[in-house]
Design a protein around this nucleic acid. Structure first.
Lengths: 405, 405
DNA sequence: AGCATTAATTTCAATGCTCGAAAAAAGAAG
DNA sequence: CTTCTTTTTTCGAGCATTGAAATTAATGCT
């Protein structure tokens, strides 16, 4: 039975969380500023920061010696995160790459390992063994006594099962159905969380673009897959897997092109790199998709289309149409004010834009409320990392530190 | 700046809200039971109920004289809402009917007026005048001194504008763009809220079927329009207009059948009564939809289809296909565990079911997570009324009474 | 009747958190 | 060395919750 009873304990948690959240969002600041942003009284800020400092969660920063622009009055002492308070391991699993990063509580990257992945990578070894080995290495290489690893967060692609600890399906070969989440949890004795990439894109977009921080945004990744994450008025909360979707596998044309997922007519089958490639070379739609398309090949196609190659341009038109109708259909259920296109496909935005906008304007919601702002954003890696980072640190803030005795 | 500071005041509000919420959801109960369901201590329940009783919000109910099944020990005194504490006016605006109900704080229907609506109804009079007149009459006819009308809640169809106080578009003739929400607010000096019908369907479905209370449900209304509301794990919270959608106007076929909204290819253009009728009589898809279809005609069509009429059955197949693909596409963004079909179209569920399920199984999410439970539910009026009622009373509970001094 | 038993409420003192006001601290300016 | 300004801390008051103990109200048994 969920008990939402409020008592002085929950008051403390809430307000400690407010303080940590303000520091997380806006960076280090003085106690007075904290009082201002959180709305708590100075007296409470004193009490809360005192406790948090005593617990080694935050610290007073050494005064930056900037004698210029000196203000009158007692100088403020900035408060910031105590970086050794925690460490987190962030894992990005991709179709062709695994990247493991170790970060401290201040969000600073400590160390990183990158390994290419192949369709056969998880045939010879289990995902559990693969990750355990690298995580152990990463930890030993940066052994710092008293800096506890608090969380392992993993970015994945695919469909999570109900408890969010394993994948029911994934475009990453041989990853679905392997219980590596639980295994790692048991092996390291730490909370392990899997996050859908689309969800992290949405989270990351918020942190990277201040304009979007409180807007309703759909972030669409276009590349080797098509994925989407949503935020609603700055909140990721909401549907399904917290803002993640299976947008790439929304049906575009009944019984249409064969998708990597095995279904037919998905948006992805037209708009992901392999789909565009297939159409550009007039390969039959029902041909089994290539397992992986080299980035150069995809970019070469973009260049050709931009140079006027008919077949290539047509393929991107079809991709734009698929994305556009997908978005138009999504708008019937969720209408964001901004749509962000990221990933390798963002470079082809110019080639798809017209079709996307045409399809969007076929949505009643767009006709009434106006079209959303659609923009492309080049680099998709950092949104995912940033999203994973902020999500994980915020979780540590709120779950572990806001509620501590 | 949103200040989420927690203090003893917010604690009180939260816990008072918990008590009122328990009574609202589970009906009258004894203090001990209240302590059990809310998780608050007996001491707190005593304090909270004492205050609420002193403020005339709840009351001790006279012991029901049921001498049988007597328990030992001190008998419990049930606590329930003090019905004269508030009244609310609930307005259901429909394409062909307006219904105004007056209810008390206990949720008991006090009085009701029903007026047929025609496409020309709001040509001769303004929506504001129409509603003001009837609301004034309703209030005077039930004048009870000391029972303050606290809220006017209006169920509408269409797209609300940003502030939720007027419609930007509506299938109800001449209702869009009329600022009746603000007018009523000013005239009566009360909070006035507009609610999308789809949203209320979702809310109502929760209250009417206990199984669905905490599930993720998409409630689809099929009749003169096609509308949908969603709940996510029992919460209406989320996207857009709090769970309301423009599902009926999701594109089904690019450049397809003409919809009443003026766009082409909407789900509604195939699945609403006029769409089915058009297809059954092989009227061209681009023919302007009939303004209103008499219920008998629609039901006659269902009967004919069930009796084996080819054209009629085919029209319902097309309707099922449109709904099915719409749902399948929605599932890429939001995958409920239950789908509820309500409204006049629920009677034709048998005729559409096969197509709906086929289309649904083309969604990757369904292949992975399994198909959602799809059921039809006959009567749609009561879910809407129930939804409007519970939503409005809960608002009064939380906004007006939980926070009172 | 009178007394034990049972179950629902209330009373009471303790705890913990926030808040406003006043005081203290730490430099800058004169 | 004193005054001024801004940041932080201190202190007592106020409030809502809680567990434990006390009270209340009815039944059952002798």
């Amino acid at each position: 039975m969920a008990r939402n009873v409020s008592d002085s304990d929950s008051v403390r948690r809430q307000n400690r969380g407010l303080v940590l959240g303000a520091l997380r969002t806006q960076g280090e600041m003085a106690r007075t500023a904290l009082a201002g942003t959180t709305g708590l009284s100075h007296a409470s800020i004193t009490a809360i920061t005192h406790d948090l400092i005593a617990q080694g969660i935050i610290e007073e920063l050494a005064p930056t010696e900037k004698p210029d622009a000196r203000m009158r009055g007692r100088p403020a002492t900035l408060i910031g995160f105590h970086r050794p308070a925690a460490a987190a391991a962030l894992v990005e699993l991709d179709v062709n790459r695994a990247r493991l990063s170790l970060v401290d509580y201040g969000g600073v990257l400590v160390d990183r390992i990158e390994t290419p992945l192949h369709p056969t990578s998880f045939e010879d070894t289990t995902p559990t063994a693969f990750l355990t080995e690298r995580l152990t290495y990463l930890r030993s290489r940066n052994a710092a006594p008293g800096v506890p690893l608090r969380r392992i967060a993993i970015s994945v692609q695919g469909i999570l099962d109900r408890d969010g600890m394993s994948l029911k399906w994934s475009p990453i070969a041989r990853l679905a159905g392997r219980p590596f989440g639980l295994d790692l949890m048991e092996h390291f004795g730490l909370p392990v969380t899997l996050h859908k990439r689309g969800r992290l894109l949405a989270e990351g977009a918020r942190w990277l673009d201040p304009n979007l921080h409180d807007a309703s945004v759909a972030t669409v990744f276009v590349g080797s897959t098509v994925a989407m994450g949503m935020t609603f008025r700055g909140q990721i909360t909401g549907r399904g897997d917290e803002g993640a979707t299976e947008f790439g596998h929304m049906n575009h044309v009944p019984n249409g092109a064969l998708c990597r997922c095995g279904m037919r007519g998905c948006v992805e089958a037209y708009a992901a790199d392999y789909g565009v490639l297939r159409n550009a070379y007039s390969v039959p739609e029902t041909t089994l998709p290539a397992p992986a398309v080299p980035l150069q090949e995809y970019e070469g196609l973009i260049a050709r289309a931009e140079a006027g190659d008919r077949a290539a341009a047509h393929a991107f038109n079809l991709a734009g149409r698929a994305i556009g109708f997908g978005l138009s259909r999504m708008m019937a259920v969720f209408d964001p004010s901004h749509i962000l296109i990221v990933g390798p496909g963002a470079r082809a935005f110019g080639l798809m834009q017209a079709e996307i906008m045409t399809a969007l304007s076929s949505a009643l919601v767009c006709r009434i409320n106006g079209l959303p702002t659609v923009v492309a954003h080049r680099d998709e890696k950092e949104p995912i990392f940033k999203g994973l980072l902020m999500k994980t640190l915020t979780e540590i803030d709120q779950a572990e530190f806001a509620g501590l005795v």
